[in-house]
Amino acid sequence: MTDMEILAHAIVLGSSALGAGAAMIAGIGPGIGEGYCGGKAVEAIGRQPEASGAVTRTMIIGDAIAETTGIYALVVALLLLYANPILGSLQSALGM
């Protein structure tokens, strides 16, 4: 490996780590969403305690839907960390 190739690899690896961290900022969204979901469910159960089973069931489904974007971000971060496609394209561009 020449110096330039090492430098190119270092830049790609460092940027991928930064990108993985930045992707997980998306965790804010599901956090807020699930917080609202849980809060409203508590309010609903407070008003109608007899409907707690149905409310909890609906809340869990709502949580799961709200969580989707966070899971997408996690998948992107995991791809960047463990199955980096950018590193592969760099290596094929360098002919390695």
Binding site: A64, T68, I71, Y72, L74, V75, L78
Partner: peptide, 16 residues
């Protein structure tokens, strides 16, 4: 896609 990635993401996150 979202169903598959939700289950996979949760399990792999727990593993990691």
């Amino acid at each position: 896609v979202s169903m598959a990635l939700r289950l996979f993401g949760n399990m792999v996150a727990g593993m990691v």
